[in-house]
Amino acid sequence: MSPKKTCAAAIALVIASQWTPAAQAATVNVTTAAQLKAALASATPGTTISLAAGTYRGSFVTQKAGTSAQPITLTGPAGAVLINDGPAGDPPDCPAPAPGYDSGYGLWLVDAPYWNLTGFTVVESKKGIVADNSHHTVIDRVTVRKTDEEGVHFRKSSADSIIRNSTVTDTGLVQIGFGEGVYIGSAESNWECHGNSGGVDRSDRVQVLNNTIGPNVTAEHVDVKEGTQKGVIRGNTFNGKGISGQHSADSWVDVKGSGYLLENNTGTFSKPGTLANGYETHQITGGASGCGNTWKNNRSDVGGSGEYAIKITTLSQCASNPNVVHASNTVAGAKKGLTNAKVTP
Rank of each mutant, 00 (worst) to 15 (best):
I184H: 06
H135L: 12
T143R: 14
I310Q: 12
S320C: 12
S186T: 12
R155F: 05
C291V: 07
A12L: 05
Q35N: 03
A43D: 09
V61F: 04
P21F: 00
T237N: 03
G259R: 08
G179D: 00
G240V: 01
P322E: 04
L36K: 11
N196D: 12
T314S: 11
Q70R: 13
G278E: 09
A65V: 14
S158H: 11
P3Y: 01
D90R: 10
G259K: 05
G104N: 03
L209E: 03
S244V: 02
Q283S: 11
E307L: 06
G106N: 06
N133T: 09
T31P: 07
Y105E: 04
T212R: 11
G100I: 04
G89S: 04
G287A: 00
A131C: 07
R155H: 09
N216C: 07
S42V: 04
E226G: 12
C7Y: 15
L315H: 11
A12D: 02
S197V: 15
R164W: 08
P45T: 02
K156L: 12
S244H: 00
S134C: 05
V152W: 05
H136M: 08
A25I: 09
G185N: 06
T31N: 07
K336A: 13
D204N: 06
M1I: 08
S161I: 10
P45Y: 04
F154S: 06
I213K: 07
W252S: 04
K146Q: 14
A33I: 13
T228A: 12
L338W: 10
G151P: 11
T6L: 11
P45C: 04
A96M: 12
G240C: 02
T266K: 05
G195A: 02
G89V: 04
Q175N: 09
Q70D: 11
S59P: 11
H135M: 11
T237D: 01
V222W: 03
C94W: 06
G303R: 10
P45R: 03
S316M: 14
S50M: 12
P113D: 00
V302E: 00
G242M: 06
S157F: 13
H221P: 09
H135N: 10
P45K: 02
L74R: 05
S2F: 06
W295D: 12
K64V: 14
N298M: 04
E188N: 09
K64P: 15
T169D: 11
V200C: 02
L82M: 05
P77V: 01
D301Y: 03
V325N: 07
G100P: 08
A41L: 03
C94H: 04
L173A: 03
S270Y: 13
G273L: 01
G66S: 02
E192I: 11
E180C: 13
Y105N: 03
L209Y: 08
T274G: 01
G185L: 09
